[in-house]
């Protein structure tokens, strides 16, 4: 029997699936992304709760980064809608900061660390506004937050992988956004950098911001994040880490790629 709600919807023509809640900082609906004629993300719905720290978790090649990139309009999607703070993406770009994968750019590019951070202030600076001392100080402060203030005048090619990642995070901080989207921020970085980055992300949460990161290290999910989205092409599960990050869900996400013994060692939800 159809529920009362469904019948109501049928009678007055209202849609059953609600539009993304206005207070959600980031919601994707019916999103499918394909690569080479095969879906890498299929029909994913996800609504991030306000002021959450979300880990997007799944096996390699399972579409985590593609989901993020498609949501941001960097790669095309076959279908889907994105709402950011209740508005379509194009209207809400100002409130988003994005940290791409470190390997996505050419680090031999002729520029300095401080210039990269200033790129994050493009919306403020526009085409022609001069870079004033206040801008420079803001950029330096963002570098200081990630512990890179001493490197402001370095050529970016001279940085280590971890330092490059921190510079990218400083650039995102300079954007002054409300929603931070990070693509594998901890991939291939040293322990000091990982600590520096997670401290910054936690301070962002304390400032009532929302952080969503593609994350590959299952061992740290419970320590770093409060929400989790498990994907393997389609959404397997999402919700608070405490109830969703279960052995059963991980098994469903990773299939045979994850040994049971490994799961046993993880800090999992008690469910």
């Amino acid at each position: 029997m159809p529920s009362a709600e469904v019948r109501l919807a049928a009678e007055d023509g209202r849609a059953m699936r609600p539009a993304a809640p206005v207070d959600s900082p980031f919601a994707v609906q019916e999103t499918t992304v394909s690569y080479g004629g095969k879906p890498v993300v299929f029909n994913v719905d996800f609504v991030a709760p306000p002021n959450s720290m979300v880990a997007i978790v799944g096996p390699n090649g399972a579409g985590k980064s593609s989901l993020l990139k498609a949501a941001l309009g960097i790669v095309p999607s076959v279908s889907g809608r994105v709402t950011v703070f209740g508005e379509p993406l194009a209207k809400a770009r100002r409130r988003i900061a994005y940290v791409p994968q470190r390997a996505s750019v050419d680090w031999d590019f002729p520029t300095r660390v401080i210039d990269v951070v200033l790129m994050g202030m493009y919306r403020e600076l526009g085409l022609l506004k001069l870079v004033r001392r206040a801008h420079r100080e803001h950029a330096t402060a963002c570098l200081a937050r990630v512990g890179m203030a001493d490197f402001a005048d370095r050529q970016i090619g001279q940085l280590s992988g971890g330092q490059q990642q921190r510079v990218f995070l400083a650039r995102a901080l300079a954007q002054g956004a409300d929603l931070y989207l990070l693509d594998e921020p901890f991939a291939g970085v040293d322990a000091a950098t990982e600590k520096a980055i997670i401290d910054v992300l936690k301070s962002l949460k304390a400032e009532r911001k929302t952080v969503i990161a593609v994350h590959h290290d299952l061992a740290t999910v419970a320590d770093y994040f409060d929400h989790v989205l498990l994907v393997n092409v389609r959404k397997i599960a999402d919700g608070p880490v405490a109830t969703t990050f279960t052995g059963e869900n991980l098994q469903a996400t990773y299939g045979g790629r994850l040994a049971t013994a490994h799961i046993d060692q993880l800090k999992l939800a008690s469910a």
């Binding site: 990139k69 941001l72 309009g73 960097i74 194009a90 770009r93 988003i96 994005y98 791409p100 996505s104 750019v105 050419d106 590019f109 520029t111 990269v116 790129m119 493009y122 919306r123 600076l125 526009g126 085409l127 650039r171």
Partner: peptide
């Protein structure tokens, strides 16, 4: 600025709109 930005990091430039 847009030239430099999109030459260095096209994906990031796209997220700025």
């Amino acid at each position: 600025r847009p030239l430099k930005l999109s030459t260095f990091d096209e994906g990031f430039a796209a997220t700025l709109g």
